[in-house]
Amino acid sequence: MNDYLDLNDDALVRYPNPSIGVVVPTLMNPFFPKMLSGIAETARIQGYYTEVFNAAQDGGDWTNLAARFAQGRQQGLILAAPKVTEKIVRLIAETEPMPYVLTDQADDVPGALRVAVDDTTGGGLVVDHLVGLGHQRFAIVCPPQLPFNMAARYRGYLDALGRHGIPRNAVTYVSAPLTREAGQAAAARIVKLPGITAIITINDDLAIGVLKGLHELGKRIPHDYSVVGYDNTDLSNYVTPELTTVNQPVMDLGHAVADCLLAKIERREPEVPATLPVELVVRASSGRAKLA
């Protein structure tokens, strides 16, 4: 049996154990199943099932979630979905008040308990690495509206670029949604921009798409461009060339956020960790800047 269960599955009525709910934006991104495994592992040890609500599946229709609240199935919620956090917090207040904890993907809620990864430092590590390789002109690929954690990464990029004296006109922002297909399309735009030698993407899916797009355009990585992602998803080690990226302690994040929620449920004082550390994983997709 899976460690976590789909909240939309009516078969869940068979499980009488207390449960916690987790709201995620998607299960297609490999980050979230891995985080869910960490949550479920901690919850199971303490006698709770983990029920998953996939926000993408219901397209913003929260009636199903509200019905589950009304059944009193969940003792608490972990919110990991951007754009819907405020709606769900309001729904909790209107239906079945319960403890909740945010991960760093969720929108900001004043006074709410949040467990987060040190993404600002992670963004800085990316820039430090590339500047150390001699890169001076950059493309940053990300969507125009960033969730809490990705906004922290972006701040980390900009802070580090400023620290290294890289002027703003040496950095081009390339707008793209968080998909591999969008990364592939972004590559076609980047190759038309003069002077860029380093491409930073806000997550690994975008980076994998960029690699594919550059390959199809006959570009060599890292000879023509260095590409650095973020998340260290499983695929990052299987693309060619292997992707330089930032590793997040995703399982640890799952353990920590579950511990905090269960403490709130059981009326204990949560031990909220400081931001969880990240590390740069250097692989073959980054190299020294090509001389002009």
Rank of each mutant, 00 (worst) to 15 (best):
D6M: 11
D9C: 06
G21L: 05
P25K: 11
K34G: 07
L36F: 06
S37W: 05
T42N: 11
A43K: 08
I45Y: 12
Q46R: 14
G47M: 02
Y49W: 07
D61Y: 10
L65W: 04
G72E: 03
G76W: 04
P99M: 14
Y100F: 15
T103D: 07
Q105G: 02
A106T: 10
P110L: 14
G111L: 13
G111P: 12
A112W: 09
L113E: 12
R114N: 08
T120S: 02
T121K: 07
D128W: 00
H129G: 04
V131Q: 01
Q136F: 00
F138P: 05
A139F: 01
Q145T: 09
M150I: 06
M150N: 08
Y154A: 02
L158D: 03
L161C: 10
P167V: 07
P177M: 01
T179I: 02
G183N: 04
Q184V: 02
A185C: 01
A188S: 10
L193P: 01
L193N: 01
A198L: 04
I208Y: 03
G209R: 05
K219S: 03
V227Y: 01
G229W: 00
N232H: 07
D234Y: 11
P241A: 06
L243Q: 02
N247Y: 00
P249Y: 09
P249N: 13
M251A: 13
H255E: 07
H255S: 03
A258L: 06
D259W: 06
L262P: 10
A263Y: 14
P270E: 15
P270M: 15
P270L: 15
V272F: 11
V272Q: 14
P273A: 09
V278Q: 07
V281W: 06
V282A: 09
A284V: 00
S285R: 08
A289F: 04
